[in-house]
Amino acid sequence: MSTNRREFLTECGKYLFLTSAATAALDFVIDGKAEAAPNYMMTDHWWAMTIDIEKCIGCGNCVRACAEENNVPVGFFRTWVERYYVPDFPSTKVEVDSPNGGKDGFPDQPHTGGKSFFVPKMCNHCSDSPCVQVCPVGATFETPDGLVLVDEKYCIGCRYCVQACPYGCRYIHPEKNTVDKCTLCYHRISKQLEPACCEACPTGCRKLADLKDPKDPVHEFLRVNSIQVLKPHMATGAKAYYRGLDGAVR
């Protein structure tokens, strides 16, 4: 009975609500298959991320979702959320905290004056990645579709890339002894699914963007807003585009 109902609804759902692309993704999920995406064309995409600071509420959903989706070891972070406090004029001492990467949310810390806001951080998937530049063996690399990935079967664990990343987005996996980092959920986006952090974000603060797709709303987003990347003076070609990023953010 339940199987019939499921099948019926699945079929209806497919044809009624979904585009054909999403149908393909759905098959992967429903079949429970963990496999490479066979119909995925790397040359059709150029992935990036947009992050709207004014929409981040510091709930920590992205941090938890990332950890669950990618089995991120406890105490390490592929994405995390920072809370900034920038005081009013005479004082210049910026205060930042990120308790457990923001995974458990942020207990309120009221200040008088100044401003407070959250900044989600993750790998910027730079197009001139300092981490890729220094990898001695080719175990971390830029893909043709604009991601920075790690080959955990090839990484020798020298940690040079961790030193080279200006954003602190890499760590050594305590069990694998290889470097580990955000993959922009390549296993999901190659099957037309959202990255886990975007899927879990309640306010639409973080959004996956495909710069090669002319219909992607990212083009509008980049055009109408003031956009900044982190540490632009590092000239890393960072592709995490922030809207409303304060100058105090490092």
Binding site: F77, G101, G168
Partner: peptide, 12 residues
């Protein structure tokens, strides 16, 4: 003060 969460442990 503040460190990025993955920076706390020294690599080298």
């Amino acid at each position: 003060g503040f460190m990025y969460p993955d920076e706390v442990e020294l690599q080298w």
